[in-house]
């Protein structure tokens, strides 16, 4: 009896094993905390000097040591917005095709191919955008668009590089994300809902637009938010086609700059400590945006899973 009691006091291997895995889990939290700490502390010099004015001024001049992030923030959001505008209808179309129309064999192979599009490295998209899409845009697409220069969206010269090219590339890159999540969500709409619609005399399209899509609304929103997150942070492809000109322009034809491409282009060339700090603060902005967006997407998915037992994303 006494022996058994004293043996219980020795930590059991069970506890050691669980403790070890718990420590590794804790390390994930610590690593994340370290990420946040490093980003904040390394961007301290610019924050100290410019404060929140960093976010709303638009001069970026390493020679004068003046840094304002506005053109980059604008470029990031504008390109992502263009990408969403193009990618959302196409992705919904793909999701509808895969979940409602395609026969089983086509469904899995087309789904596989579209997901493969997501596996292609960003650089390859950039290379394609630089050497294929850009000449196409410059010769065939942008000249007719520039005839519409009474609209603020089409002023400027057809360069082939700029917001339009970057937006198109980003659209192709986020279509797999949005379409595959939307498809998974549409699958989870119960068959009897569709049958109910058909029984009421709806056409197949009306079932899709009035039953399936409304039923999967929050999942589609989550997919869009995740796609947006991917577009905002995308670096290499955008860097190769955006034109790298820090300016605040509405025109699709104009070259621009994004947060991520500024970091990619200027980091190795920056020798001034303040410029490094400004670039790191840009990274911090991108980090904060991506955390907000992913947390939001996660909450949406969480809500959806609770209400409809939907697909785990």
């Amino acid at each position: 009896m006494a022996e058994r009691l004293s043996r219980k006091k020795i930590i059991s291997p069970e506890k050691i094993f669980m403790g070890m895995t718990a420590i590794f889990s804790l390390s994930v939290l610590l690593i994340s905390a370290l990420v946040v700490y490093e980003l904040f502390s390394a961007s301290e010099p610019t924050f100290h000097k410019f404060g929140f004015k960093f976010l709303i001024t638009k001069d970026w001049d390493p020679v004068q040591k003046v840094y304002g992030a506005l053109p980059f923030i604008w470029g990031t959001f504008y390109t992502s917005f263009i990408a969403l505008l193009i990618a959302l209808p196409v992705s919904l179309g793909i999701a509808i095709f895969l979940s409602e129309l395609a026969p089983a064999w086509l469904r899995s192979s087309v789904g596989f191919l579209i997901e493969l599009l997501a596996a292609i490295p960003s650089l390859i998209f950039g290379l394609w955008g630089l050497f294929v899409l850009s000449p196409l845009l410059q010769q065939y697409i942008e000249p007719p668009l520039s005839n519409l220069s009474f609209l603020p969206f089409f002023t400027g010269y057809p360069l082939g590089l700029g917001f339009l090219n970057a937006g198109l590339l980003l659209a192709v890159m986020i279509i797999p994300t949005i379409s595959s999540i939307s498809r998974d969500v549409m699958y989870t709409v119960p068959a009897n809902q569709r049958e109910g619609g058909l029984a009421l005399g709806m056409t197949r399209w009306e079932v899709v637009s009035k039953v399936v899509i409304p039923n999967s609304r929050s999942g589609i929103l989550g997919a869009v938010v995740l796609g947006l997150g991917r577009a905002l942070g995308e670096t290499m492809a955008v860097t190769m086609v955006i034109g790298n000109t820090p300016q605040f322009s509405l025109s699709l034809l104009d070259p621009g700059y994004t947060i991520s491409s500024a970091i990619a282009n200027q980091f190795t060339e920056a020798f001034d400590k303040l410029q490094i700090s400004a670039l790191i603060e840009l990274g911090l902005i991108l980090f904060v945006i991506s955390v907000i967006i992913n947390a939001f997407a996660k909450l949406l998915m969480f809500r959806m899973n609770r209400f409809s037992g939907g697909a785990r994303i």
């Binding site: 994930v28 994340s32 990420v35 980003l39 390394a42 995740l226 997150g229 905002l232 942070g233 995308e234 670096t235 991520s260 970091i263 990619a264 980091f267 670039l279 790191i280 990274g283 991108l286 980090f287 991506s290 955390v291 967006i293 992913n294 947390a295 997407a297 996660k298």
Partner: peptide
């Protein structure tokens, strides 16, 4: 959330 952090931020 960490999974959504852009690659370039990991570089920084």
């Amino acid at each position: 959330v960490l999974a959504g952090v852009p690659a370039i931020v990991a570089g920084i």
